[in-house]
Every structure is written in C-alpha cells, then in structure tokens.
Amino acid sequence: MSRQALAEAVGVHYQTIGYIERGQYNPSLDLALKVARFFGLPVEALFSLEPFQPLTDEVYGRKQ
C-alpha cells in the first residue's frame, strides 16, 4: 500500500496523506470517513484526539 494509492482512492493529493500522518493537517470528517472506509476500519481506529500507543505496547501490554 502506498500513499499514492490511498490518495487516489480517497480523492486527495498524495502529499495530503503525508501531512495527515505527521499530524500537520486534520482531515475533514468526510475525508476521515473515506480513509476509514478504504481500510475497512471504524474511524476511531484511525483518528483519535489522544496520541495512539505504539502497537508493540498494545500487543505486549507494556505500560509507559
């Protein structure tokens, strides 16, 4: 999966995916829902008001 493919699927410039990843742009609700639909996940699995825990912490139950 590339940013380009995701960008084309949700109808934005590929740079915009990078901006969202880095937290430099908050997508509109419409775009957030499109990204969630693309991955087949609920939107709260991809976007949150709080920073996400690293995956290894969640898998191994490590507390920070």
Binding site: V12, H13, Q15, T16, Y25, P27
Partner: peptide, 8 residues
C-alpha cells in the same frame, strides 16, 4: 484541482 488540505 486542489484537495481540501491544499485549499486551506
């Protein structure tokens, strides 16, 4: 031709 982030 611009997306929402580019328009902002």
């Amino acid at each position: 031709m611009l997306d929402e982030r580019q328009l902002v």
